[in-house]
Amino acid sequence: MGAVTYPQAEVREILERATIPIQFDNTVDAAQPIIKRYHHIWTPDLRILTGDGDELYRWNGYLPPAEFAAQLLAGLAQARLRLRAFDEAIALYEEALKRFPTSLCAPEAQYFLAVANYRKSGEGSDLLKGWHRLEGRYPLTEWTVKQDFK
């Protein structure tokens, strides 16, 4: 991550624009209180937190720069969605889909973009329209299965 992903400009730009970044070496004694607080077990372990320390999104594992940037945007969008900042969530999901439409997390972004639009408007048609787009663009993903009850 430190050698390949973080040095890339697209990753740095998103982190700097939207976050306060902090790292903990999990072999260092001083990190143990934070490790225990967040039940850390495996690296890379990435979390998005509120300013009160509440966790809003997480993922594990190495991702190359473009996949990481897409995952970060989707994670930030999910965090804003959970905070009910719908306009910010929508903008971040749309950015993820526009810049990284073939990324691994694009189906997740499309799924929750529909949710964010629905939560903002209260119109069921916004949810269904977004999920239909998910089925069309990403037909063979877990997120397509997860909306298939409709």
Binding site: M1, G2, L15, A18, T19, I20, P21, I22, Q23, F24, D25, N26, T27, A31, I34, I35, Y38, H40, T43, P44, D45, L46, R47, I48, L49, T50, G51, D52, G53, L56, L72, L76, A79
Partner: peptide
């Protein structure tokens, strides 16, 4: 970092790593 996030309205990005 938490205090800076509260003041700026940004979110905290926390990375646990193993050197």
């Amino acid at each position: 970092a938490l205090d800076e996030a509260r003041k700026t309205g940004k979110l905290v990005f926390l990375d646990f790593f193993n050197p």
